[in-house]
Amino acid sequence: MRLLVLMTAMAGLLLTPVARANSDLETSGDVLHLLLPATAFGATLFHEEGDEGSWQLIKAAVSSRVVVEGLKWGIDKERPDGSGNDSFPSGHTSDSFMAATFINQRYGWEWGVPAYAVATYVGYTRVESDKHEIEDVLAGAAIGALAGWYFTTPYEGLTVVPIAGNGQYGLYVSGRF
């Protein structure tokens, strides 16, 4: 419950001035791109005991950003609006999906689904504001999600994940006992 209150308070504090100053789609994506990782980090500080979650988030964030910046430097792709040659992959989307995956992996789908909805919206704003093409956003989402998944373990309790592939279906169950 404290996590929900924290997320709501942070959203209210950060979005209210932006809504008054500029209702631009790109600005809303920029704000949410910062809010989602900030919420994840806040949850590790105020919801958890110890610093395990904070370190997992930091490792996921740094690894995701290093991959994104390396690809941006190595791939010279112009943005659709012509504002630069660093279109591939989308850093905003990578950061957002890294945070959403961290939230989902660490705290469960109840928090993960809204976080993924926010991350998807951030990706949408990047395409609609002509900063990226869809492949840039999809690559950023994949990089962020993989980093979040690789470095994050559940905070507490039992995690159940559906698995489907090669004609087989099942559940992956993990937890701390």
Rank of each mutant, 00 (worst) to 15 (best):
D136K: 12
G91C: 02
Y155M: 08
A60G: 07
A145Y: 00
A61Q: 03
F46A: 14
S94H: 03
G165S: 05
Y172L: 14
T101D: 10
A11S: 13
T125N: 05
A142T: 12
S87T: 09
R126H: 05
G165W: 04
H33F: 01
R2V: 11
G82N: 11
I75F: 14
R79M: 06
G123I: 00
A60P: 05
Y150I: 04
L71R: 07
L158Y: 09
K72M: 05
W111Q: 05
D81F: 07
A11V: 00
R106W: 09
G148W: 06
K77E: 15
A117H: 04
V137T: 08
K131M: 13
L3A: 15
G140R: 04
P37F: 08
N85R: 15
D81H: 10
T153E: 14
L15P: 02
S23N: 09
D30L: 02
M7W: 13
G175Q: 09
M1V: 11
H47S: 14
P154I: 09
L71S: 08
W149F: 12
L4R: 14
N166Y: 10
W73K: 15
A43F: 06
E26W: 09
D76G: 06
D81L: 06
E128G: 02
Y150V: 05
G140K: 05
L13I: 09
H132F: 04
G165N: 06
W111D: 04
L32E: 01
D86V: 02
W109Q: 14
G157V: 07
K131F: 12
A147I: 01
Y150L: 06
V5C: 08
G42M: 12
S23C: 00
T39V: 13
D136P: 14
V137M: 07
V67W: 00
W109E: 15
G148Q: 08
Y107F: 14
D86G: 04
F88Y: 15
E133M: 12
A9L: 12
T27Y: 09
T120W: 03
Y107C: 01
P80K: 07
S28G: 13
H33K: 12
V18F: 05
G108R: 11
D76A: 07
Y155I: 02
P114D: 09
T39G: 12
Q56H: 03
T153A: 11
R20C: 02
A21D: 07
W111C: 02
A19I: 04
Y124S: 00
S23V: 00
R2E: 15
M7E: 12
E52M: 12
L57R: 02
V67G: 02
D81S: 11
P17N: 11
G175W: 07
P162F: 10
V161A: 08
G157L: 06
F102R: 01
L4Q: 14
T8S: 13
A119Y: 01
G70L: 11
N85C: 08
G74K: 10
A164N: 13
A141M: 09
